[in-house]
């Protein structure tokens, strides 16, 4: 944390702007290419119109071990439709041109390694992308990505988990730029009825290790859950619920869910969230 403004990067700066308004930021996820490349762009634009603060665009992958069935199905449909990495970069470019907010790509590691780590970093930056969230890349294996991201001033969002030791949280947060992604549950993506009692202690442990914003994802699907998480986290990350909203109501459904979640993260907090 030698230079906090640098570490905050693109997404962290946007999250802190929301925090300065006394609220948590809303981070919204949708996969590129779902249901089609153009349809995906429209759906992501609907998140922007609904008031999301940071965007995550998923890069569909054949073997998504961190994803529950909702996002798995979306990835399968995108790939069956012939989606290529260049289409993902094209989606980033269109969305970044449309919206003045950070656009991150969430991706499993092999497609990036195959594309070429340096080449991807350069092309992502050129498309206006803000960085990567890497669910199956730990900093221990991430030297090449870390170097490429630093060179291109891209965010590096690694994950911490309820099972992470304090030592691992220290290692991981020291490698992050932008924010830290805290997974609220031991499990995969997907809506859950029950709030997680693992998330708040994890956020507290993470904040003890870093000054970076901490976002909480996995299982948040409605405004009440978003408000609950916003009470202790800097950002609330929602994914599968957006895919479901898109399935049920198209871009209008996505926009409606975004507005509802944006209201959730703005509800009055009983106590201020420590930085």
């Amino acid at each position: 944390m030698s230079d906090v403004s640098t570490e905050l990067g693109n997404a962290g700066t946007a999250i802190r702007k929301a925090n300065d308004e006394g609220r948590a930021a809303l981070v919204g996820y949708l996969p590129a290419g779902y249901p089609t490349v153009d349809g995906g762009v429209d759906a992501i634009k609907a998140m922007v119109d609904g008031g999301v603060d940071v965007l995550e665009i998923g890069l569909p992958y054949s073997d998504p071990v961190m994803d529950g069935v909702t996002i798995q199905r979306a990835a399968e449909i995108a790939l069956a439709g012939g989606l290529r990495i260049r289409d993902v970069l094209g989606t980033v470019e269109k969305v970044a041109a449309y919206a003045d907010l950070p656009v991150l790509v969430m991706t499993y590691w092999n497609p990036i390694e195959r594309y070429g780590v340096d080449r991807f970093a350069v092309d992502l930056a050129a498309a206006g992308g803000a960085g990567l969230i890497t669910p199956d890349l730990i900093p221990d294996e991430g030297a090449e990505w870390i170097a490429a991201a630093d060179k291109n001033e891209l965010d590096k969002v690694f994950l911490v988990s309820p099972s992470s030791t304090d030592a691992r949280i220290g290692l991981t947060t020291a490698s992050c730029r932008g924010f830290v992604y805290a997974t609220a549950v031991m499990g995969v993506t997907g809506a859950r009825d029950q709030a997680s009692d693992l998330a708040a202690p994890l956020v507290a442990r993470t904040k003890a290790a870093t000054g970076l914003p901490v976002g909480v994802g996995l299982g948040v699907s409605n405004a009440d859950q978003a408000a609950d998480v916003a009470a202790y986290a800097d950002a609330v990350i929602v994914g599968s619920a957006f895919v479901k909203a898109l399935n049920a109501g198209g871009p209008a459904g996505v926009r409606s869910l975004t507005e509802s979640l944006a209201e959730g993260v703005r509800r009055e907090r009983s106590t201020p969230v420590a930085r």
Binding site: V65, P135, D136, I138, E141, R168
Partner: peptide, 10 residues
């Protein structure tokens, strides 16, 4: 090496 979610590392 290990290319898996952080949740499984510990």
């Amino acid at each position: 090496g290990r290319f898996l979610p952080e949740a499984l590392i510990a």
